[in-house]
Amino acid sequence: MGKKIGNAINRIGIPTFAVGALLLVLLIAAGALGQSIPTLISDILKRIGMNGVLVLAMLPAIKSGVGPNFALPIGIEGGLMAMIICMQFDFEGWGLIGAATLLCILFCSILGFLYGKLMNAVKGAEMTIATYSGFSMCAFFNILWLAIPFSNRKMGWMLGNGLRETIDMKKFGAKNIISDFLAFKIGKVTIPVGMILTLALLCFITWLFFQTKTGMAIYAGGQNPRFAEASGLNINRNRIIANVFSTILAGLGIILYSQGYGYTQLYNGPMNMAFPAVAAVLVGGATASKASIPNVLIGVCLFQGLMTTGMPVMNQIFTGTDLSDIMRIIIQNGVILYALTKVKSGGDR
């Protein structure tokens, strides 16, 4: 019996199981403490919608053998730049979202291509170098936010030049524009249909991509580069394609995130956004070399569920402390650490 349970846990994966169990405990505790469960579930759904695409961005990178995309900030900065430029020209509402999406795909393709080149040059040490290239890219964009003469007063400081740290999406009529699209309520629970549809659509596109000849080649190159090479594939090119894809998803992800959050966060905002996304996909049962759409979806539900539920529950139990954030950091980094110990050998050869 004990053995059976052990096997079951192993099949689900220890992080998935542990986080799942913790989430369950917290939800029960929340109910017992008299928290409003419908509000909590509405929050969880919203955060799943906001973060889902950022987690999905891990998939192409992992499948191609590069490993989790720790350089998520690169794509995020591309997405932010697209939004800021569209805001500069006073696009509003759906126009802003649409224009930013197109521009984001352009920017992120270029950034992803360059990043892919870098990843091919550092095979075997992708994860570390990706982390730091993400950080460096943030610093570089910090300069751009200050140096490029954006002139739209809605984005500037009260005094002086440069962009503000957070820009209110409400001023551009884009706050919650996707979240509220077709949204409806079941009892007190709000279902953010627009965001869930967007996430579903992007998941479908990703899935479809990996059914194509190119997608299959990328997958094989990630699984066994020597095998792919023997089949006459250009692995480096495929890795670049995967990184471009991942970077574009990151850019689209931040657009979706920002409208849900109501603000675009510039400067060091994107710096640490890779870690929750990496942790989420790993919690979902992915490894540094294998991932699937279900891993992404399960992961984002569990991880964001935990984050959302943890905060009010912890704050109520331990009043006046910041325990929920400490817990977030422990779980997030703990899961990443656990997953990294499972990496057999980085890259190929």
Binding site: M216, A230, S231
Partner: peptide, 16 residues
């Protein structure tokens, strides 16, 4: 070099 060990047989056969 010869196989994708953690992929199904049918994909292995068809891949190249």
């Amino acid at each position: 070099v010869g196989l994708l060990l953690s992929s199904p047989i049918d994909l292995n056969i068809a891949f190249s």
